[in-house]
Amino acid sequence: MTTKNENTLLEIEHLQKKYEDAEVLKDISFKVDIGEVTVVIGPSGSGKSTLLRCINGLEDIQSGRIILDGKSITDGKTKWSLVRQKIGMVFQSYDLFPNMTVLENVLLGPTKVQKRTRQEATASAEQKLLRVGLLEKRDAYPRQLSGGQKQRVAIVRALMMEPEVMLFDEVTAALDPEMVREVLDVILELARGGMTMVIVTHEMQFAQAIADRIIFIDGGEIIETGSPEEFFTQPKTERAQKFLNMFTFE
């Protein structure tokens, strides 16, 4: 049994989030170990995206703690711009900066935030763009790329900051079906390379293939957790079973 302390990268403790008076996240607690891929699934409105946004500080929380590398990042004293360098996030809506080329998009963070040299950052960028198959698009503008290409660039942009953990928020939900696979393949490769990840997705087969652990959320609470084998074949709760039934046809 591995000691939780040494291997635990991210800890969420009793997270609570409210929008006005409505509780969106009720009492969320879980741990993410180094190299572990956690997939969060659940129905729409269950709070999965909000959870990721809370981890990244894009949403504030009403109570609970988030601990990264043993240090709390929700104590009010955290400089989020520093924390966000360790937590990479890719969104559903790609959101590349339209006024910059692909290369400029991915270099912005390393050069302006981390003050790395342009040569070093460019070398790293080109290597990553090559790995996702987009090196020849380095001088293209986002409007010239397809959705799948934009999403792959967004992943590179996040990776350029050398994060410790990557968050993926339904990154294929807005893509045409033909392009979903190319993006999922990139994420799969990242996982095999040992990147710690928390993924929110609707793609069940992808979840089954990539996850080390599944967290099922509904109505702002964690209903069930387990290994993918357990969850997809023998869910422990009725709500989980009902949810899975929506994806199978008789």
């Binding site: 520093l82 966000r84 959101d95 900066f97 912005l108 935030v113 350029m160 900051m161």
Partner: peptide, 17 residues
């Protein structure tokens, strides 16, 4: 769009940047 600003935030840019 707000999502552009959030993209900037998520790569660690501060408000001024």
């Amino acid at each position: 769009e707000k999502s552009q600003i959030e993209s900037g935030m998520s790569i660690g840019l501060d408000r001024l940047q």
